[in-house]
Amino acid sequence: MAVESVAAPPPSELLAFWRAFRENRGAVIGLSIVVFIALVAIFADFIAPHDPIEQFRDFTKRPPAWTEKGDWQFLLGTDALGRDMLSRLIHGARVSLFIGLMVMLVSIVVGVALGLSAAWFGGLYDVAVLRVMDLIMSIPSLVLAILIMAILSPSLTNTIIAVTVVYLPRYVRLVRASALAELSKDYVTAAKVAGVGPFRLMMRTVLPNCMAPLIVQAALGVSDAILEAAGLGFLGLGAQPPTPEWGSMLADSRDLIVSHPHVMAFPGLAILITVVAINLMGDGLRDALDPKLKRS
């Protein structure tokens, strides 16, 4: 075969990214697990063998099916109220991923708005935004979330609000710092000279160049949000019963640790697997998107 002398066209950005991402085996495993969990969450209604809040009063505290007293009707057993563990876990994936994604979306939108505007306007406004973010960071995350939940009553929506407020400073500071770095570069000056308006300049010229670290932060932020929300749920301050939320399922299991450890084991395992998978994926994203940050 003759050697091609014509240089191949540069691979598209997405393809280049995928090639870099694919090199990291852990990241690919993480991504596959995340996709699997996402599918489970989306199709929960079809996959779950039972209604997650239906109480089978004749089958309370059943151990998993493969044990001696198990029942194949309830693959992972039932909890203290006779609710099917597997169905609750499957629907719990929906709750947890929903919280994680909502927190991420709201944080990105608000974080980009505040970060970009702080970088653009500077001055007193910048100082004010930074001070508020410093204040949020000076209150320990879980304590702040508890404070917010004490004011708003515990519910799924309020969990999302509380966790978003807690993690917002990271996004704002990240966007502001990268935008400031970009603003001093020549291409921005060129765009300004060309008469690009401030809004278009920030959104179309500057923002795309701040995306790499933001995407990495967003991916890792989802796992933090899921952990934080589960912690709130465990303390009884998150999603309220009978919502099948992994953290509150764990809280319900505390009296059964000794007699029925399976009720405690599965929800925690679900949280752990989800968070590990997202973190693996996030590490891979970071290596692929931002070689400067690469963890050697």
């Binding site: 953290g247 925690g268 752990l272």
Partner: peptide, 12 residues
């Protein structure tokens, strides 16, 4: 360890 829900870890 970094991804561990510590309340579950404690119960375990």
């Amino acid at each position: 360890g970094y991804s561990m829900p510590i309340f579950w870890w404690g119960l375990l």
